[in-house]
């Protein structure tokens, strides 16, 4: 491949969002009740959505953007701006309530790497559990088991229940398994940073290895440094809409101030 072809815009758009909105209904007691729903149907009354007491939270509204292979996108925005919801939509967890979201390729989401950890099971069992949640094959983990255990620096603790671990140990284990993932599109909520100084450099190297094989990164972050270091583009979300979209330098300057 010619070097000139490597510019991001020559690459295909793997993610295309057109007018994507994600609105959460808030059910009050009356609409959740089965009894009342049956009565509604039975009496034949068609009740307009507004009158059933539906309140809708508009987490994302009319998002339009595309992300090409090779792009590393930082998501900026205050708490509640819709960053996590957008990560969920990118991970195919939330289907848009309106609009269309086309996502081509396997998505790996590291939104909460400790999700599903079972404190009663051993570290070893949790490796398989965590891997299963990520959709990694059992054989694949079996093959890399020793490497994961060694990386997590847990030693003999690996055969003890995870509830006996310090929070740092738990995080190292979750990190070691989660970074086995090799998705085409990687979605992260904050940059993963675990352990002491020594471990952090090891962890950074492992994350970099993971990123090398990843076509697209979407990283929600509050850190200007991380965004500038790892990303080449940024989206600034405000009240569930895109306020600014462009090269990370420009957006960071606007969002964080000069």
């Amino acid at each position: 491949m010619q070097p000139t072809d490597l510019t991001p815009h020559a690459e295909p758009e793997l993610i295309v969002f057109r007018d994507v909105s994600v609105h959460f209904p808030v059910f009050n007691a009356s609409t959740r009740s089965f009894r009342k729903r049956v009565i509604q149907v039975a009496t034949g009354g068609i009740v307009a959505p507004d009158h059933t007491g539906h309140i809708v939270v508009q987490a994302l509204t009319n998002l339009n953007f595309g992300i090409r292979s090779g792009e590393r996108v930082a998501l900026f925005g205050h708490n509640g701006a819709g960053k996590t919801t957008l990560l969920g939509a990118l991970s195919r967890i939330y289907a848009p309530t309106s609009g269309s979201a086309e996502i081509s390729g396997a998505v790996g989401s590291l939104i909460n790497i400790s999700l599903g950890t079972d404190p009663e099971s051993t570290g070893r069992e949790n490796i398989f559990l965590r891997a299963a949640i990520l959709g990694l094959g059992r054989d694949f983990i079996q093959k890399n088991l020793e490497e994961i255990i060694e990386f997590s620096e847990l030693g003999d603790f690996i055969d003890l229940p995870v509830r006996t671990y310090s929070s740092g140990m738990q995080l190292r284990l979750a990190f070691a398994v989660s970074t086995m993932l090799r998705p085409e599109i990687l979605v992260m909520d904050e940059w993963l940073s675990v352990g002491d100084k020594n471990f952090q450099s090891k962890a950074a190297a492992r994350l970099d290895a993971m990123l090398r094989d990843t076509k697209i990164l979407v990283l929600a972050t509050h850190s200007r440094d991380l965004a500038l270091r790892h990303c080449n583009r940024a989206l600034w979300l405000e009240h569930g809409r895109i306020k600014l979209d462009g090269p990370v330098k420009d957006v960071a300057a606007a969002y964080f101030g000069k």
Partner: peptide
Amino acid sequence: STMIRQTAA
């Protein structure tokens, strides 16, 4: 619900 809201399984 926690798991469903955070994984695409």
